[in-house]
Amino acid sequence: MSVIFSAESAGLMYPDGTQALIDTSVKVAAGEFVSIVGPSGCGKSTLLRMASGLIAQTTGTITRTGTVQFVFQDSTLLPWRTVRKNVALNLELQKIDQRIINERTSVALALVGLTDSADKLPRQLSGGMKMRTSLARSLVCEPDLYLFDEPFAALDEFSRERLNLELRNMLSTRNAGSLFVTHSIAEAVFLSHRVLVMSPRPGSIVKEFVIPFGNDRDQNLRYTSEFAQVSGEIAQTLRELTP
């Protein structure tokens, strides 16, 4: 599999001397889903922002091949645009032909189950529907790399589990890589091929877990002893890292 994102000994020091990340190495291959877990403030989101190019690393190298889409913690919808127009936004900003925008937007809306709500405004949507709109906005661009910054953190457990499954299904037909930041170990294990654990600030990757489940996953997986065992090992690693 070709590597589409790679950070080699990347580090970030803020102008005030705060070392946010140190000697961080991550690779994401095409079609691979990698999650990052770690204590609050360890630099998970900072790593994601570096991966997107929003901020530049101060040491090491970062390599991206292909296009990137970022899914934020909050849905970041424009409240004056309808669901359809929000989904079309990124394509519109890329100055893509309107006919293609319409086609791809309709497909993405159908994929996230929002065709009937296409003409609604964000204020008329539930939290889950807003997040689906945000996902559709990224899906519609068909990027090579998805960056997810705790996209389901604000949702209730039921909506979160359902969207986890939907996200897996949506990405299963694509060959894009994904780097997913979360605080939920269960979410990370359910979604990922690999889970990376970060140390407290200055953050760096201290342990990697290869998730031993195939691509065909459903909600029942969460209740298996293997799932509990992997989740327990990750939780134990995090406990040891947290002072």
Partner: peptide, 8 residues
Amino acid sequence: SLHDLFRL
């Protein structure tokens, strides 16, 4: 985040 969305 909305600024980031456009910058990206």
